[in-house]
């Protein structure tokens, strides 16, 4: 009897520490980013870092460390991707959950999930050889290495996440809800919009947030397809350089312990804070709408 209790306690401890490991890693990563990133501000003012759009740490003349244009680029590409992926993703999820026959769903859903397995380098390559020339042709530009290209590619990459999670949450809505709706005389569309979507709202928010997370953190695809110019973009037809691409391009050649090195950690910390904010917002939205129905 005593032994059983002891094992019970031991196992509780094991699972507790397993849960805590993730927290330790999270705090460790954030701590390291902040610790190293903060050293940037010994020589660079906060106003320059966040307020200037001039990023040129290995300059010919005076180096400059303004991240504003890269911050705007990241947000722009992500927002563009979501403008495309959210309607498409939620629509597909609604079709799979509410309209499609089991036969169609059984092959369509795994196919969509397969899309998540395409390596980002391959998506970037498609962006260079296929999407960029197409954009240039359609909009009459000289080239298509711009924010729009990145947004389209990121939308494709975020789609499987959004569709899978949103569809799961729609399918989790109890059958009785739909039956009640039909019994009151509502048609399929009204049932979807007034019953299923509100009931699965927290899951849909989660799907969108995961999609945003996928888009913000993506590196290789945007690095290959968006032109990487550091100038402040004036619109979706301008080349952009995201925070992730900057870290990927420059960390390989930076000398350890220099201001340039620390400022790249600063970029990492900014990325981390953005995803933290997005997640907190999601948490709040999801709980707010959870019991509305």
């Amino acid at each position: 009897m005593k032994l059983r209790k002891a094992i019970d306690q031991l196992m509780q401890g094991v699972f507790l520490s397993a849960g805590l490991t993730a927290v330790v890693f999270l705090l460790g990563i954030f701590g390291m980013l902040l610790f190293n990133g903060a050293k940037t501000f010994k020589e660079v003012s906060l106003a320059e870092f966040f307020g200037s759009s001039n990023w040129n740490p290995s300059a010919y003349g005076e180096p400059s460390f303004g991240i504003l244009s890269m911050l705007v680029s990241t947000l722009m590409v992500t927002a563009g991707a979501m403008l495309i992926a959210i309607p498409l993703g939620i629509g597909t999820a609604a079709y799979l959950s509410e309209v499609a026959s089991p036969k169609v769903r059984n092959w369509l859903k795994p196919t969509i999930e397969l899309l998540a397995g395409v390596p980002s380098v391959a998506v970037g390559f498609i962006g260079i050889v296929l999407v960029a020339p197409a954009i240039a042709k359609v909009f009459g530009l000289s080239n298509g290495l711009n924010a729009l290209n990145g947004a389209i590619l990121l939308a494709v990459m975020a789609l499987p996440t959004i569709i899978t999670v949103a569809e799961d949450s729609m399918r989790a809505v109890p059958k009785q809800f739909r039956e009640a709706s039909y019994a009151l005389g509502a048609n399929g569309w009204t049932t979807l919009v007034r019953v299923v979507l509100p009931a699965s709202f927290s899951g849909i928010i989660a799907a969108i947030i995961l999609g945003i997370g996928r888009a913000i953190g993506e590196t290789m695809t945007v690095l290959m397809a968006t032109g990487n110019a550091t100038a402040m973009p004036n619109g979706f037809f301008d080349p952009v350089r995201t925070l992730t691409a900057t870290i990927a391009i420059e960390l390989g050649e930076v000398a350890y312990g220099t201001n340039h090195y620390y400022s790249l950690f600063g970029l990492g910390a900014v990325l981390f804070v953005i995803s933290l904010l997005v997640n907190l917002l999601a948490e709040k939205l999801a709980s707010k709408f959870r019991y509305k129905l």
């Binding site: 040129n56 290495l145 990487n228 550091t230 100038a231 080349p239 350089r241």
Partner: peptide, 8 residues
Amino acid sequence: EYAAHHKQ
């Protein structure tokens, strides 16, 4: 310096 809009 290079022009800031130069694609890398």
